[in-house]
Amino acid sequence: MLTNNVEIKAEKLNSYEWKVKDLVIDDKIGTFSKVFQNHGGYFFAVDRKALYDTMSGIVKGRSSLVYTNLRAEYEEIVKKLGLDRVIRLDKNSKVDAKKALFDVEVGIMEPDALAAESGSIILFDFDATKSFVAFLPEIFIAIADESLMYDTVPEAVGALIKKHNRLPATIQIVNGPSRTGDIENKIVRPSHGPKDAYLIMVR
């Protein structure tokens, strides 16, 4: 099947000044943590050994989970969590996504980048798997390490374009859990997206 992804002259995009000159952040992780939590997200910085316990605590009481874009080590941890229904979502898994994900409770993935200034989780999504995992479940968990951290969203997007040498079908930027204030400005979570958004920073 021919790809529908956009093939853009990456050299042109790579020539843009993606770095925001006056915005250099010394404590990227600290800034990300503060902003992400201000938006209602949860932030954990853990050692590898504590990853299982951390995830176990988050998914306690839940019975269904979908994951995508996880390295083998994290995939093993997900399977160890022992949830009743665990769905791997990628081009090889042949899942009827709409049927399988209607009531799935947890979504887990490794994102493509983080941006400190805005507390953003950035996804380069070619096949909708990352979008489904990030938007459909009630709980969204992103597992990252420091190497994914940039100062700002433009800088992160520019770096990802350079890395992939093309644009994906979508770039999704997630700044926290879904919310609405449309009735008398009273903020309620969730609205249609996840109720809780977690960023686990693995040291």
Binding site: A169, T170, S178
Partner: peptide
């Protein structure tokens, strides 16, 4: 910042 920013470049490969 709004919670979500969506940048659509084209249809997806799979779903």
């Amino acid at each position: 910042y709004t919670t979500y920013v969506h940048i659509i470049n084209g249809p997806y490969d799979l779903y």
